[in-house]
């Protein structure tokens, strides 16, 4: 008998699988039996992860902001059987105070963190609707709910993802497709490596659990939402932040 959260025979697309959190998400879905489609722009990092995972791992190099990328990624996944799980994890930051923010910093973050996620979700829906099953998981951020100085673009995009997920969830709930968000707090990855030690200490002080998050903390939340067991959970945001914000 299959164990809890079993994903045997399912296909999952993870964007930004070349990054810290995306890599952990891909590993955890794969460990439960899913076939994973690893996407990102850096081929070496994706190939290395695919080699580590062995069977059931496929690399699709793509810049999700490019026109046609979403359709290409979905088509590759559908070739492997059927696209069951989409994890929109690719994301960037271009931090600076609003007064200093360039249009390009604003647009770049909205394009990557919001528009590209919409396109991928839209492209995934067709097959999911037909099969009456699907899981769409959007990686948002604590900052999309609490705000953060220096991140007007990022907070807007991440809050946008939450609204988008709720609207989409309402549209397609009757077809067995769920759309949810996972909102990490501060997780130790390349994205937070930019902080110096003082900033890091100050940050840790604000986390009741007393440590930064690990990519695996986020991956576990994704695995739950990807599972059949979570079929009645939709339009929600699961906060994974060590208690930093209780919302």
């Amino acid at each position: 008998m299959a164990g809890a959260f079993d994903l045997d025979g399912q296909v999952a697309v993870v964007t930004g699988a070349s990054g810290g959190i995306g890599g952990a998400i891909a590993r955890s879905l794969h460990a439960q039996g899913a076939t994973v489609v690893l996407t990102g722009r850096r081929r070496e990092a994706l190939d290395a992860l695919a080699a580590e995972l062995g069977e059931r791992a496929h690399v699709v190099v793509a810049d999700t902001t490019e026109e046609g990328a979403a359709e290409k990624i979905v088509a590759e996944a559908e070739k492997l059987g059927s696209l069951d799980i989409l994890v929109n994890n690719a994301g960037i930051t271009r931090d600076t105070l609003a007064m200093r923010m360039k249009d390009a910093d604003w647009a770049g973050v909205i394009d990557t963190n919001l528009t590209a996620c919409f396109r991928l979700a839209r492209a995934s829906l067709k097959g999911m609707m037909k099969r009456r099953h699907g899981r769409i998981i959007n990686i948002t951020s604590i900052v999309g709910v609490t705000g953060n100085a220096g991140q007007t673009n990022y907070a807007a995009a991440k809050a946008g993802l939450i609204g988008m997920s709720k609207a989409m969830a309402a549209e397609i709930a009757a077809r067995g497709i769920t759309v949810n968000c996972v909102a990490p707090g501060f997780v130790a990855t390349a994205m937070t490596d930019a902080l110096d030690e003082k900033q890091r200490d100050a940050l840790t002080q604000r986390i009741p659990a007393g440590r930064l998050g690990k990519p695996e903390d986020v991956a576990a939340a994704c695995l739950y939402l990807a599972s059949r067991e979570a079929g009645w959970v939709t339009g929600q945001t699961l906060h994974v932040n060590g208690g930093m914000a209780m919302i």
């Binding site: 067709k126 609707m129 549209e171 397609i172 009757a174």
Partner: peptide, 11 residues
């Protein structure tokens, strides 16, 4: 048919 059905039909 509901609204989603009609969209699916058109597609």
């Amino acid at each position: 048919a509901d609204s989603l059905d009609t969209v699916e039909l058109v597609m």
